[in-house]
C-alpha cells in the first residue's frame, strides 16, 4: 500500500498531539498514521514514559500465562491472587492427585465386582482429602515452608487455602467417579461420602491445632475407616454409617469442628508458643 508523497507536516502533527487540530485534520492524521511508518516515527517519544512502559511489559512477559485451573477459578469470581495459590497447591502433591485417581479406580472396580463393593468406595472417599492435606503443608513436606512461615499468610491462612484446594480436587475427582458406579447403587447412596469427607477434613484441621498435621491426618483417616468397619461388624449392618440418620450426625460434626477450627486457628501458626 502506498501513501503517496504526502506526509504529515510538523505543524499539523503538533496540533494533532496537543488536541487543537480541527476535525478534518485529525481524521487525516490518524488515517495516515496507521499506514505511514515515517510519520509514526515522527510522533515524539517521551523517553522516561517509554522506559517505564517497557518495564511494566517486561514484568508481565516474564510472568507465565496463568494455567487453565487458575483462569477457571478467576472466572468463577475467585480473586486472582487466591486463584494463584489454590491452583498451585494440587501441583505440589501431584503424586497424591495421581494416587487419588488410582484408588478411586480400584474402588469403582470393587463396586462392580462385589455385592457390597460400593461400600469400599464410600469408605475410601473421605480418606482422600485428609491424605492430600497432610501432603500439601508442613515443614517436612514443603521445601519452602521456612520461607513461607515468615510471611503474613503463614499458618492458618496458607494451610486453609491449601486444604481448600486439596478438598476441592478430591471432591471433584470423586464426583467424576460417581457416574461410573453400578447403576444399582441408588443415587442417594452414591453421594453418601460427601458429608463424611467434609467431616474428616474439618476434623483433621481441627485436630491439627493440637497435634502435628500428619498425625491428625492419620488419626482422622484411619479413625474413619475403623469406625465404619467397626460399626458394620458390631451391628451387622454395613450400610448404617451412610444412612440418613448418620448423615445428620456428620452435618452437625462439620459445623462443630469448623467452629473449633476457627476458634483455635492461631494454633496452626508454627511460631505459636506452646
Amino acid at each position: 500500500m502506498t501513501t503517496g508523497d504526502w506526509h504529515i507536516p510538523p505543524g499539523l502533527l503538533e496540533r494533532y498531539l496537543d488536541g487543537s487540530l480541527d476535525p478534518v485534520g485529525v481524521m487525516s492524521v490518524e488515517a495516515h498514521l496507521v499506514r505511514c511508518a515515517r510519520c509514526r516515527t515522527a510522533v515524539p517519544a517521551d523517553g522516561g514514559w517509554l522506559a517505564t512502559s517497557w518495564e511494566r511489559i517486561a514484568a508481565e512477559v516474564a510472568a507465565p500465562a496463568p494455567p487453565l485451573t487458575e483462569r477457571l477459578l478467576h472466572g468463577a469470581g475467585v480473586p486472582g491472587h487466591l486463584a494463584r495459590l489454590l491452583a498451585a497447591t494440587p501441583a505440589l502433591s501431584r503424586a497424591w492427585a495421581a494416587a487419588v485417581a488410582v484408588a478411586l479406580g480400584f474402588a469403582v472396580a470393587a463396586a462392580h465386582l462385589a455385592g457390597h463393593g460400593f461400600l469400599a468406595f464410600l469408605t475410601l472417599a473421605p480418606v482422600l482429602p485428609t491424605a492430600g492435606i497432610a501432603l500439601a503443608y508442613g515443614r517436612r513436606i514443603d521445601p519452602a515452608h521456612e520461607t513461607y512461615a515468615a510471611t503474613p499468610m503463614a499458618g492458618a491462612p496458607l494451610l486453609l487455602v491449601r486444604s481448600t484446594a486439596v478438598l476441592l480436587t478430591a471432591l471433584a475427582l470423586t464426583a467424576l467417579a460417581v457416574p461410573l458406579l453400578p447403576a444399582a447403587t441408588m443415587p442417594s447412596v452414591a453421594w453418601a461420602w460427601l458429608l463424611p469427607a467434609l467431616t474428616t477434613t474439618s476434623g483433621c484441621l481441627a485436630l491439627a491445632t493440637r497435634v502435628p498435621l500428619p498425625l491428625a491426618a492419620v488419626a482422622l483417616g484411619g479413625g474413619w475407616v475403623a469406625v465404619v468397619t467397626g460399626v458394620g461388624a458390631v451391628t451387622g449392618d454395613r450400610t448404617l454409617p451412610f444412612r440418613p440418620g448418620a448423615q445428620v450426625l456428620y452435618g452437625c460434626a462439620v459445623a462443630l469442628l469448623t467452629l473449633v477450627l476457627y476458634v483455635r486457628r492461631h494454633r496452626l501458626d508454627p511460631a505459636e508458643p506452646r
Binding site: G80, P143, H145, T151, M153, A154
Partner: peptide, 23 residues
Amino acid sequence: PGFYPHFTVFETLDYVAILKEMT
C-alpha cells in the same frame, strides 16, 4: 531456603509476593 523445582524463577517470587499480601 527450599524451592519448588517445577516453578520458574518468576513464579517462585510471585508466590511469595502473594503470601506477602500483594494482591
